[in-house]
Amino acid sequence: MDFFLNHHIAFSLLAGFLLDCILGDPHSFPHPVRFMGFLISFLEKRLNKPSDSEKIQRLKGSFLVFIVIFTSFLIPSAILYACRLIHPYLFLAAESIICYQCIAAKSLCAESSKVYRELKKNDLEKARKAVSMIVGRDTDILDQKGVAKAAVETVAENASDGVVAPIFFMAVFGATGGLVYKAINTMDSMIAYKNERYKNFGFCAAKLDDLANLIPARLSAILMIISTLILAIFPAKQRFHPINAVKIFLRDRYKHSSPNSAQTESVAAGALGLQLAGDTVYEGKVEKKDFIGDKLREIEARDIVRANVLMYATTILTVVISILIRLGY
């Protein structure tokens, strides 16, 4: 018992990852991110006033960030403390469930695979609808290659902030660290837009997300490069190019408005021999973006599968390394 408790983070991480592999994200199961989203929305509607000055908007946005982070830390900490008082195994079970809810590997794979299946059936309308569930861009103007590219980019980018980064924070700070990271990431996705409504109110959330992902994004890219090398060793239908992954990563990792978003996307582009990113349409307006990667070949639906293989390989490598470090190896 003492061994399990002394290394509870390692075992909870492993259990959480296995639960995610088996169960994914059941929509009927209460998820802490949904509660975070409700709290963020509740506070934003009451605090974000267009009539406020820029300084007041930033102060109110910072207050929202504080409340959401404090709540995301306090509630699970209290639950885990109570479980530990009742029984050590209950504590381990609760911590494992929290770790499971912080990892989104299967959900990311499942949602992007829906896009792949519709493209394979040549049903462009359903493919557009499927990809609209995981990207923020306008999808009704995308052709088949555009839909495939959007899905690949989402898998590549979210391999970091949806999978590796939560694992990193849980490995360092425990399950509550993972939930605090998810709170930061959720705030970024909800209120950190560069429009009139959120550019000041969401300023703190955006900067905090950049800071929180500073190390995980680069760590994710390095682990993805290593995964590309491992995958390239095994003969398979998938195509991975580790040397090109390193080349594109070194060249294109900062070709994004965010300092972190292109880290894993550049690795994936190089590993798959694709050209990703480029101009994108949001709400009818074209947003100019640099291309990431070289077009060594045309993108195809199968690249969504390849991106998921690369994402899962990176996830497994992250989990294994995290567990070994926590066990003291």
Rank of each mutant, 00 (worst) to 15 (best):
S160V: 02
A159K: 00
F201E: 07
K237Y: 08
V172L: 15
E118Q: 12
K199Q: 09
R128E: 13
P235A: 07
A192Y: 01
N122E: 02
L179M: 14
A156D: 02
A221E: 04
E157A: 05
A127S: 12
F203K: 13
K182F: 05
S220I: 07
P216T: 08
Q238M: 12
S160Y: 01
D140Q: 14
A171M: 09
V131N: 14
M224W: 00
L223D: 06
A192C: 01
P166D: 05
Y198E: 09
N200C: 03
M224P: 01
M133T: 09
K129A: 15
F168P: 10
L211D: 02
S160C: 12
I222L: 15
G162V: 03
I222M: 13
D123C: 04
M133A: 11
P216W: 05
G178T: 11
E196M: 12
V180G: 02
V180M: 15
L229N: 01
I167Q: 03
D140K: 15
R117M: 00
K237W: 09
K145C: 01
I222S: 11
K120H: 00
M224Y: 01
L219K: 04
A171R: 13
V163A: 01
S160Q: 07
K145E: 07
V163R: 02
K145A: 02
A205E: 03
N122Y: 01
R239D: 01
Q238H: 13
F169W: 15
M170Q: 01
T228A: 15
K120Y: 00
F173A: 15
G178M: 11
A212K: 03
R239T: 03
I141R: 09
D140N: 15
Q238V: 11
A205W: 06
M170V: 04
A165R: 11
D210M: 08
D138H: 06
K114L: 05
N122D: 04
R197N: 13
V163L: 03
E196L: 14
I215P: 03
S220T: 12
R218H: 08
I222G: 12
D161Y: 05
P166I: 10
A151W: 04
P216A: 08
F201K: 07
M133P: 02
E153G: 03
